[in-house]
């Protein structure tokens, strides 16, 4: 059990299940907030010199032993060649969140390395990587998976502090703001709880100096938030019993929920088809257990149940195989 920093704790929540190799919209939003979290940590630690409304920071801070690698990475991209920078609280946060994709990638490596070192984050293959189209295009897909106990600790810790009566710590206020800016609030609070969270936001705005300063700053981009919300809504709809059926006939709607695995021989027997599917899944490092064999086998892949339904796709010639469909419990 480790004491994680604000940025590390937030990364455990926001990077979980995101593509680890490509810069997706959801990941960009998470990384912008992780960079802002690094600045908030320095602010809470008192590394900035305050001159009226301006916060001043010298480049010398980069060599201080208490500055962590990912914090230094964020600062390096903000400072560039300057020796000292001065700006308002909002300016620093905006600057940290407006890093280029290249810089964000470096911040990502720095933060995930720190978490991988603690065995709290790992990279696992995505099931979609087994799909015929991805295999033939030689696209390798991997995603982050946070340690489930630590993920639970972070999410439930924040939920309890926010939903329970009592004073919030600065870290909790900062995390609440980060969750708002990364559009992750609805991932950890239910719709009903969100009403209470909104009340909490208003209370904090009036009672806490940090909250008043922080909640006025918006680092999210409307277009990115809209894209992220739309994609998660689509995924949610396609996970329902009706959605799963629709997605089986029209797999392009939500590819990650309908994976097609081609079989070696045409018109092969159910046992041979299953063998081919297991071979592909094992090759890509997935943990598979056959719950039920037969014409439509039931498989447990990485703790999620899927039915493997015989199917064919039309290329220049018909390609036979099996389509994995999320099994509704």
């Amino acid at each position: 059990m480790e004491d994680l920093t604000l940025a590390q704790g937030f990364a455990i929540i926001s990077l979980n299940a995101l593509d680890s190799r490509h810069m997706t919209t959801a990941k960009r939003m998470a990384l912008r907030c992780i960079s802002a979290a690094a600045i908030l940590e320095l602010y809470l630690k008192g590394c900035f010199t305050e001159k009226e409304e301006q916060l001043v920071l010298n480049r010398e801070v980069l060599v201080q032993p208490n500055v962590l690698l990912y914090q230094a990475e964020v600062l390096r991209h903000i400072f560039k060649k300057k020796t000292s920078l001065e700006g308002t609280f909002a300016w620093w946060l905006m600057k940290a969140s407006a890093l280029s994709d290249k810089s964000l990638k470096k911040v990502e490596h720095a933060i995930t390395d720190s978490l991988k070192g603690l065995n709290l984050v790992e990279e696992i293959p995505t099931l979609l990587g087994c799909d015929l189209l991805y295999v033939t295009a030689e696209i390798t897909m991997r995603e982050y998976r946070s340690n489930s106990l630590e993920y639970n600790r972070q999410v439930e810790g924040t939920r309890s502090e926010v939903l329970e009566e009592g004073e919030l710590t600065d870290e909790d206020i900062a995390k609440l703001w980060l969750l708002r800016e990364s559009a992750c609030l609805n991932e950890i609070f239910t719709k009903k709880e969100l009403d209470n969270v909104l009340i909490r936001f208003n209370e904090l705005y009036q009672s806490s100096r940090l909250a008043k300063r922080l909640f006025e700053v918006c680092i999210h981009h409307m277009a990115e938030t809209a894209v992220k919300n739309f994609l998660s809504f689509k995924k949610q709809i396609m996970s329902t019993p009706v959605g799963t059926g629709i997605n089986f006939d029209f797999p392009f709607i939500e590819r990650s929920q309908s994976v097609f695995i081609d079989t070696e021989a045409m018109f092969s027997k159910p046992e041979k088809r299953l063998e081919d599917v297991l071979k592909r899944l094992n090759h890509y490092g997935h943990e598979v257990t056959v719950i039920r064999a037969g014409v439509v086998p039931l498989l447990k892949i990485d703790n999620v149940l899927y039915e493997a339904v015989p199917d064919a796709v039309m290329g220049k010639i018909p390609i036979q195989g099996m389509r994995l469909r999320r099994y509704q419990i």
Binding site: N152, R153, E156, G157, R159, S160, E161, L163, E164, G166
Partner: peptide, 16 residues
Amino acid sequence: SIGELVRLTGSRYSTL
């Protein structure tokens, strides 16, 4: 506090 109990035990807030 209940939040600290969550951090200590790794249990869900709703459960506690």
